[in-house]
Design a protein around this nucleic acid. Structure first.
Length: 490
RNA sequence: CGGGGUGUAGCGCAGCCCGGUUAGCGCAUCUGCUUUGGGAGCAGAGGGUCGCAGGUUCGAAUCCUGCCACCCCGACCA
């Protein structure tokens, strides 16, 4: 046994870190809280990017790129925004190093910058400064823009993928002539996020609205998708913000409308990050390691050739090459592991730990019989399949794995979503079972805060659908118009 | 920032209380032979400023002082 993965039941946090390490997704860096994304992790991210990017473009968005440095003064322009981000900004103050006799290498005092630069924690400010120059007329609108970038937030406590000081994400920033158009955009993106999570990641999500206290700094309304992890904790998987005219006012971004009047521009911003990889790991994987949904898996199928003698090797590798060609032609991402210095058992284990959805084993016996051994990672089932029509069988199996992962994640969420009208029962559910708890809430920040302080549970969202009903908040005794979803969260 | 912990080979650790030959062990690595349908076996080899800086001592990984870093648990967050 090279490295053991801590079982989930023993220590869920350690299990999560062990899975990342043994699947070679990421590594720690010399700098606290930063993460090295290894090829296995990055390939996964690239597949996520490709799918999302396609959906953004289909809905009329274009990619651009803005600088990593933002003048410090920009951050000060939107009051809520600065309050939200000021405490976690990396600040660049000098432009040079020099060797000092006493202290070694130091920032050269003579190179102190005229104005400090902030390493972007998000790009609203620099983008709205730019939009104020780009937008004059209603003809300049809308602007539907996205960027793939890295951002830095100086977090106090970090966790690989879930919260790192630097992370990769996409941030969309759109500008509109009317409030309705901006709200519609916010919801269009929310739908894209939910579709991506469910159809590609096989992660069921709940669409909802954040409460005022959980809202993005500078937003009028924050919409989100929330997912439930295997340990019963919730994770915010993506957010889409309706920014109103807040940033337009802060950066004096006005346009002349068809009636010849000056109006402030309406805004949205939205993002998902490498945190999604964390969600993927926590939702599907098991004590043996990572489990990847086929649609995002960099390797969908790994073929392990088995042979003893040299003449067997020739025959087996030739058959493996045929299978490879056949499956590739059918658009399946297959990898033939013909490395000689590793034994089959070792390879079986490697692909299991790395979450490859389907593993094929091909030995002299199979070649003689015209079969191949097929093992699926999610259920562990093994079967012998005929080489006849193999590409179709595998494609079907991949779909079945994809659907199976979604179904079991959904079943888990449903089993762990409970409704209550009693605060005592609410606490009991959180302590004994975890998961989502649906309860009435009077809509006040006071009650929300009290519940958070007493139970560590937060309102994950006010779901968009299916939770409206008249009732009473059991904590305050005040009337309520809708249930909301509470959970302890990452 | 508060609480706890850890720094010794690439990784994981022992040794430290009670100072004393050449600082050990497991995994990994390299070489050779045998192996190959579920993480191979045997034999050999390489690899260390014991976190950093002072101090005590004939002698410090070990005792003392100071510093630094990282990890875990809380408050904050995509």
């Amino acid at each position: 046994m090279a490295e053991a993965i801590t079982p989930r039941a023993t220590d869920y946090s350690q299990w999560y870190l062990d899975v990342i390490k043994s699947a070679k997704l990421a590594d720690y860096s010399p700098v606290r809280g930063c993460m090295i994304i290894r090829p296995n992790g990055y390939a996964l991210w690239e597949n996520m990017q490709a799918a999302l990017d396609g959906m953004f473009k289909e809905t009329g968005h274009e990619n651009a790129y803005f600088p990593i440095f933002i003048p410090q003064s920009f951050l000060a322009k939107e009051a809520d925004h600065v309050e939200g981000f000021a405490k976690e900004c990396a600040v660049v103050t000098h432009s040079r190093l020099k060797v000092d006799d006493e202290h070694g290498l130091i920032a050269d005092p003579d190179s102190k910058l005229e104005e400090n630069l902030i390493v972007r924690p998000t790009s609203e400010t620099i983008i709205w400064d730019t939009y104020s120059r780009w937008i004059q007329s209603w003809r300049d609108l809308p602007i539907l823009m996205n960027q793939w970038a890295n951002v830095v937030r100086w977090e106090m406590r970090t966790r690989l993928f879930l919260r790192t000081m630097e992370f990769l994400w996409q941030e969309g920033h759109t500008a509109h002539a009317t409030e309705q158009e901006a709200v519609d955009e916010t919801l269009t993106i929310l739908d894209i996020y939910a579709k991506f999570a469910e159809e590609y990641m096989a992660v069921p999500v709940i669409k909802g609205v954040k409460t005022a206290s959980e809202r993005f700094a500078g937003a009028v309304e924050t919409y989100c998708i929330e997912a439930l992890m295997q340990d019963g904790k919730a994770l915010q998987a993506g957010t889409s913000h309706f920014l109103g005219q807040n940033f337009a006012k802060a950066f004096d971004c006005k346009f002349q409308n068809k009636d010849n009047e000056l109006e402030y521009v309406w805004a949205t911003s939205w993002g998902v990050s490498t945190r999604l990889i964390g969600a993927l790991i926590m939702i599907h994987s098991d004590d043996q390691g990572l489990i990847l949904p086929p649609r995002l898996a960099p390797k969908q199928v790994a073929l392990v050739p088995i042979y003893r003698k040299d003449e067997d090797m020739q025959v087996v590798l030739a058959a493996a090459a045929e299978i490879e060609k056949e499956l590739k032609a059918a658009g399946i991402r297959i990898f033939v592991d013909d490395r000689d210095g590793f034994r089959p058992g070792w390879k079986f284990n490697e692909y299991e730990v790395q979450g490859v959805p389907i593993r094929l084993a091909l030995g002299p016996r199979d070649v003689a019989n015209g079969t191949v051994e097929v093992a699926r990672r999610d259920t562990g089932e093994k079967q012998s399949m005929s080489r006849e029509g193999l590409a179709d069988s595998i494609a079907e199996l991949l779909e079945s794995v994809q659907q199976g992962l979604f179904d079991s994640a959904l079943a888990h969420r449903e089993e762990n979503t409970r409704s209550t009208d009693s605060y005592d029962e609410f606490k009991q559910i959180l302590d004994e079972k975890g998961g989502f708890v649906s309860m009435h809430w009077d809509g006040t920040a006071e009650t929300e805060l009290r519940i958070k302080e007493e139970t560590k549970a937060t309102i994950r969202c006010i779901p968009l659908e299916g939770y409206e009903e008249d009732g009473v908040d059991p904590v305050s005794g005040q009337p309520s118009k809708s249930r909301v979803l509470f959970a302890r969260a990452y």
